[in-house]
Computed example of a mutant assay.
Amino acid sequence: MRGRVLIVAGSDSGGGAGIQADIKAVTALGGYAMTAVTALTAQDTHGVQAVMPVPPEFIALQMRLCLADIGADAVKTGMLACAEVIETVAEVLSEVGVPALVVDPVMAAKGGQRLLEDRAVSVAITRLLPITTLLTPNTVEAAALTGLPLESFEGDSLDGMRRAADRLLDFGTHAVLVKGGHRAGPVVTDLLVTRGGEHSYSAPRFDSVHTHGTGCTLASAIACGLAQGLAAPQAVERAHAYVQEAIRTAPGFGGGHGPLNHMHTVRPFP
């Protein structure tokens, strides 16, 4: 076991996304996962039915205890929900300092339920992005963060994704992975842009509804790679391959957007 990852995110009662997916991904890639739960959700493969927020001061306590005792080689944030929580998380991380911070700007659930308040977007830009090592927005989230029209991300060109990444780098983050899963076409391409250049990662699109938690899983897999000493392009490459196989071998659970096979790297006991 190598690489300590503190995950600051919401819980998914269905186990496909959120804290549950994060723990599975980090564990399956040989890392050690800790958690600071930001919200409880009642959900299944059909969507989120209810959300119960965790008080910001309790989120901070969870973070501080983990960081002071066990320590972390990387931190990954997921569902932060509101401006007060983002402020709290940013404050703790700025005080303590961590080698790497991966931010998945979770704005909506797979079923479309809103998971981030409008006011929280501007707070994330001013407080969280300047201390972020790698930001992982999909094209919808990238459009919301940058103000670029969603239509600019469509078509065969990656120019829209590139423009969004450049604008997000201007906000202070060190690297941006714009995920292309929401774009049309038989091939899905994710674009990593850093201050030193860019890398693209492409794979055939799977004709499957069992993709719940792909964003959470990818971000946590990247955080695990960074915690284990991989450079950003290599961490993204390994995480991308891990998620593709997890989608390909998804178990088919549930009647809606089902979970991935997070454990495809794990050999079961005989």
Score class of each variant (00 low, 15 high):
V48S: 09
M161D: 02
P186E: 12
G155F: 08
T41S: 14
A100P: 04
A241C: 06
S13G: 03
L101G: 09
V102R: 12
R205D: 14
V96E: 06
G229S: 04
V106R: 10
R2G: 02
A33L: 09
P56H: 04
G71I: 12
A17P: 11
L145V: 05
L6W: 05
R248G: 04
S157H: 08
V209L: 15
G155D: 10
E245G: 10
M263E: 02
I131M: 07
V236W: 02
Q244G: 14
F171V: 13
C216T: 08
A165N: 02
V176A: 06
R183A: 01
A120K: 10
L230E: 08
D156E: 15
S94W: 00
A144G: 04
V85P: 05
H174K: 15
A74V: 02
G252Q: 14
L169V: 06
G256H: 10
T189H: 09
D44G: 13
G256P: 09
A83F: 03
P204D: 14
I19A: 11
T77P: 09
L128K: 03
L158D: 15
L101A: 08
V37D: 05
G147L: 00
E117W: 09
A108P: 05
V123E: 06
T194N: 09
D190Q: 04
H257F: 15
T249I: 08
T139E: 02
A81F: 02
L158C: 08
L93F: 12
